[in-house]
């Protein structure tokens, strides 16, 4: 399949790509340790760490007690003193238990200490709805953490980026929070061999278009691509920007697209109110790209409700492909 002399690109799942990144990091850097609940012989709640414990042992792949606050804090303290911990939360919802260490310690230590230290910790958060796990195991809390200066927050939407962003996070001196969408874990896609970085703070233009810009995050980037393909059939050419990093946001890529298309649709799974799309919208509205807008900005986000259990309700509270198609068509046709 690789007749050309290019680096090997195989198809891996999103979860396998993350595991490969951790495998590379563990093999190359003694300072790297994985910490989390049931990431050892169990393989992780979503089987992301898999059998890494067999390869690297329990001192490198550490099962923690069910102690999110303590565990996250240990990772912070370890990062502060020379290790490169990757801390896995079983569900991103459990970040709420560890907020003290994430928000008050990891994010602020460098600043509070006048730049004397860095906290190179990586935290992984399986996030999002669609698994029937209901209100306490389905949230998208990236905007919570994105609100905190000192943190970096990324949301890979492809296997390639899941690996590249994790490796970039490990080489980053500051705390990086990775929100992985649970429904993407099984997604297959090409993943380059070996070590590479997907740059933090850089969005990806997934599809080029001229009629409107869809700025989406995480799984919504995939849904936006599907919607854009659908729209293409009726002659509406949507540009799809996968934000990839929520903080720091790739201002230039978004603004350039909006200057070109004059229309902006933000699509994100987190609750619409005060969410990532609000920031994207404000960023555009405050910039010179405002002058290029030819319609009000439209946001599609999660409903102002907890994620419900019933599968139809669960689908209804987050944007789906037909919602994106409809909103994008209305926007492109000047109906909004």
């Amino acid at each position: 399949m690789n007749a050309e002399n290019t680096p090997e690109v195989r198809t891996l799942s999103y979860a396998e790509a993350i595991r490969e990144a951790m495998d590379i990091a563990l093999a190359e850097d003694e300072r790297v340790v994985l910490m989390g609940e049931d990431i050892g012989v169990y393989g992780g709640a979503f089987q992301v760490t898999g059998d890494l414990v067999e390869k690297y042992g329990e001192t490198r792949v550490m099962d923690t007690p069910i102690s999110e606050l303590g565990g996250a804090g240990v990772a912070v303290g370890a990062a502060l003193t020379g290790l490169r911990p990757i801390f896995e939360f079983q569900f991103s919802d459990f970040a709420t238990l560890a907020m003290e260490q994430i928000v008050n310690q990891a994010a602020k230590l460098r600043y509070m200490l006048g730049g004397a230290v860095s906290v190179p910790v990586v935290m992984r958060f399986p996030a999002g709805s669609g698994t029937g796990a209901a209100a306490q195991h389905s949230q998208s809390l990236e905007a919570w953490l994105g609100h905190v200066p000192g943190l970096k927050v990324v949301q890979p939407s492809t296997p390639e980026d899941a690996k590249g962003l994790l490796l970039a996070a490990l080489d980053d001196p500051d705390p990086v929070m990775i929100f992985e969408h649970k429904l993407l874990y099984k997604m297959q896609g090409p993943v380059p061999e070996g070590r590479y970085h997907t740059p933090i703070g850089k969005a990806a233009i997934r599809r080029v278009g001229s009629d409107l810009s869809i700025v989406a995050t995480s799984i919504m980037a995939q849904k936006a691509i599907a919607a854009a393909d659908e729209l293409g059939k009726s002659g509406v050419e949507a540009e799809v920007i996968d934000l990839r990093t929520v903080r720091p946001m790739d201002r230039e890529t978004v603004l350039a697209s909006v200057r070109k298309t004059g229309r902006l649709l933000c699509v994100y799974e987190g609750v619409k109110t005060l969410g990532v799309g609000a920031e994207v919208s404000a960023m555009v509205a405050e910039s010179d790209a405002f002058d290029f807008l030819d319609a009000p900005i439209v946001r599609l986000g999660g409903a102002d409700a907890p994620i419900p259990y019933n599968p139809e309700l669960e689908k209804a509270v987050v944007p789906q492909v037909p919602d994106i198609v409809e909103a994008a068509a209305a926007l492109a046709q000047g109906r909004t």
């Binding site: 807008l293 030819d294 000047g334």
Partner: peptide
Amino acid sequence: ATPRARGLAREGGIDLAAVAGTGP
């Protein structure tokens, strides 16, 4: 009028009052 329409009108020397808007 949208910002882009205003910009175009400015550049084109068009009084927006003379433009019939088709948007909502």
